[in-house]
Design a protein around this nucleic acid. Sequence first.
DNA 1: CTAAACACTCCAGCGACTATAGATATGTGG
DNA 2: CCACATATCTATAGTCGCTGGAGTGTTTAG
Lengths: 137, 137
Amino acid sequence: MYSIGDLSRRTGVKIPTIRYYEQMGLIDAPERSEGNQRRYEKRELERLAFIRHARDLGLSIDAIRDLLALSEHPERPCGEADRIATEHLASVRERIARLRKLESELERIVACHGDHTIGDCYVIRALADHSMCESEH
Amino acid sequence: MYSIGDLSRRTGVKIPTIRYYEQMGLIDAPERSEGNQRRYEKRELERLAFIRHARDLGLSIDAIRDLLALSEHPERPCGEADRIATEHLASVRERIARLRKLESELERIVACHGDHTIGDCYVIRALADHSMCESEH
DNA sequence: CTAAACACTCCAGCGACTATAGATATGTGG
DNA sequence: CCACATATCTATAGTCGCTGGAGTGTTTAG
């Protein structure tokens, strides 16, 4: 039996976040002590670790809810789980691509080096004038 | 004289977002028509384009507010503008690095290809068991 | 038995919008 | 000049995924 604090320490998920996950239906409402405090079993520790890991990988609460539901049916085919992860991978790749563009844009902008005045600062001019950009974004 | 709709079309910033920027102090409250509708000048069009561009580059509202304030003092040195952009570049690079790690983690997880059951699905097992990860995250 | 540590609920706030409802204004064709 | 369509107004609430605080009650170690 773990208290919510134990669970928090063991998974690295903050206490209010655990209660939030309960509210969001990611974990079932656990048993309570005589004094109405949450008391968890090992099962719930594992479930929360799963959630934590999936969140660290950037999956949305909705995607995690789906994956958790799937994991309760070990006999079913796993195509759906694969689809969720694959889609997520695609969105991560997209974000990387977008950030790379921003990176190169910012690199060019930053080349100003702060050794003159705002009036002829490349940072400010580049932001004011979109046509100075290399790629459209 | 532009209406808020004109401004929106010309900059690609949605109407409620323009009003939101006004509330947040990024653009001054403009003149109003007889019937209390916002009427903008070219100055404000340019300012909004600046904001839009900076947002596209991922700068926060606070950073943009600072840059706008700086751009009103063309005689001052531009070290501060440079600092804001450089810091932002660093945070973009950090995000790229984090996403790359996620990408490779997800690539490994997704290798499952959905041709079996949940019970032995790598996606689900990998999420449940952090020790299967290559790098800590 | 007491004091410290812990947990409870409820509610507000973050950032950057986005959406809705219900009322008013503006611009255009007949 | 008027009807009508479109545009705009304000105010408020919702989005996502938490995070923090206030005020109260519970558990546990010494």
